[in-house]
Amino acid sequence: GETKIIYHLDGQETPYLVKLPLPAERVTLADFKGVLQRPSYKFFFKSMDDDFGVVKEEISDDNAKLPCFNGRVVSWLVSA
Rank of each mutant, 00 (worst) to 15 (best):
G1F: 14
G1A: 11
G1M: 12
E2W: 11
E2C: 12
E2H: 10
T3A: 03
T3E: 04
T3H: 01
I5A: 01
I5L: 03
I6W: 11
I6L: 10
Y7V: 08
Y7N: 04
Y7Q: 00
Y7F: 09
H8C: 00
H8W: 13
H8K: 06
L9K: 05
L9E: 06
L9C: 06
L9V: 14
D10C: 03
G11C: 08
G11S: 09
G11P: 03
G11I: 00
G11Q: 08
G11A: 08
Q12P: 04
E13D: 11
E13Y: 06
P15M: 02
P15E: 14
Y16V: 11
Y16F: 11
L17G: 07
V18A: 09
K19C: 12
P21C: 08
P21G: 05
P21E: 09
L22E: 04
L22W: 05
L22I: 14
L22F: 06
P23S: 07
P23W: 01
P23G: 02
P23T: 01
P23I: 11
A24Y: 08
A24N: 07
E25V: 01
E25W: 07
E25A: 09
R26F: 08
R26L: 11
V27S: 03
V27G: 03
V27N: 02
T28Y: 03
L29F: 00
L29D: 00
A30H: 03
A30D: 00
A30G: 12
D31F: 02
D31M: 12
F32R: 06
K33D: 00
G34S: 14
G34P: 00
G34Q: 14
V35Q: 09
L36T: 01
Q37I: 10
Q37M: 12
Q37H: 12
Q37F: 07
R38D: 15
P39Y: 06
P39C: 09
S40D: 15
S40I: 15
Y41I: 01
Y41G: 06
K42T: 08
K42E: 04
K42W: 02
K42H: 12
F43R: 01
F43T: 03
F43E: 02
F43I: 05
F44D: 02
F44S: 07
F44A: 05
F44K: 01
F45M: 01
K46G: 09
M48L: 12
D49K: 14
D49H: 14
D50L: 07
D50Y: 09
D51Q: 14
D51S: 13
D51F: 10
F52C: 15
G53D: 14
G53P: 10
G53C: 14
V54S: 11
V54I: 14
V55L: 10
V55P: 01
K56Q: 09
E58C: 03
E58Y: 01
E58F: 06
I59Y: 04
I59L: 04
I59F: 05
I59N: 02
S60D: 09
D61K: 00
D61Q: 11
D61Y: 03
D61F: 06
D62S: 02
N63M: 07
A64K: 08
K65Y: 13
K65G: 07
L66D: 00
L66S: 02
L66G: 02
L66E: 06
P67W: 00
P67Q: 03
P67S: 04
C68A: 12
F69I: 11
N70I: 06
N70F: 07
N70S: 05
N70P: 04
N70V: 05
G71K: 00
R72I: 15
R72H: 14
V73P: 01
V73F: 03
V74H: 09
S75Q: 00
S75A: 15
L77K: 09
L77Y: 00
V78D: 03
V78F: 10
S79D: 13
A80M: 11
A80Y: 08
A80I: 12
